[in-house]
Design a binder for these strands. Structure first.
Lengths: 123, 123
DNA sequence: AAACTAATTAGAATTATTCTAGTTTTAATT
DNA sequence: AATTAAAACTAGAATAATTCTAATTAGTTT
């Protein structure tokens, strides 16, 4: 674990946002950390391969990075905003339905976030 | 709905594979349809915007296209293979847990497919 | 058939990401 | 402290998937 990778891991673990590589890069620069975007990508890949972070893929958005603690997501179908939600772990229930071993699962609930709801009401 | 879009929609609806734009393009060429890859992309985008097809995103793979009939997916964490699975619709149950209206959800179950299991046993 | 519109196309552009090969930093060893 | 080796980092090129642009073709309507 390199120093930079650790900084990046801390950012991800300390934030409830779901940051892109670019956003992490900018946040580091704000904090006067001298780092290149390539290193951000390299570190993210390394952290991901070690299972220390997760990726969240949403159509139309660059990869966003997330802490590993189990949780699910609300995805705003208008603006793409991701919000964590803590539902009960369904692994055991799913395993009963699936003929091969279940490693994990990924649940994204599509909704319209409050902010987009408001905007739409205004129009 | 253009003639080409209809051909593409038929391919997607007639197949349990989860084809990429490129695969759809190649399949059309096999069938002697004169079409460009750009038109395949354009048509897919149009079909998607009309809600006539869905996209499946899996890390490391190009977008794959899918019929809209509600179902869930098994995703092989080794090879990326997608398999349909028909679990009970959870929308109502999820709605009880979520403070905003639930439009839909996307459940991907990560597993190791039979073929990859076999390969691993051999090694 | 001329005129208009819609569909299609080739290829350029874009975007996010990975790769390459050189440079810098760090740590270990003399 | 100088030398060496390894690891980390970097700029910029390369890549891959997809979208965009502007021109062409096909289909319709007058």
């Amino acid at each position: 674990m390199t120093k930079n990778a650790e900084l990046i891991l801390n950012i991800i673990n300390a934030s409830y946002d779901h940051l892109t590589a670019e956003q992490i890069y900018l946040r580091l620069k704000e904090d006067q950390v001298k780092i290149s975007l390539a290193t951000v990508y390299n570190s993210l890949t390394a952290l991901y391969e070690q299972g220390l972070i997760k990726k969240v893929l949403v159509e139309g958005f660059p990869d966003r990075y997330d802490r590993v603690r189990r949780h699910d997501h609300l995805v705003c179908s208008r603006c793409g905003r991701l919000t964590d939600i803590n539902l009960k772990d369904m692994t055991a229930a799913l395993q009963k339905e699936v003929p091969v071993p279940v490693l994990s699962y990924d649940l994204k609930i599509s909704c319209i976030c409050d902010e987009c709801s408001k905007k739409e009401r205004r129009n």
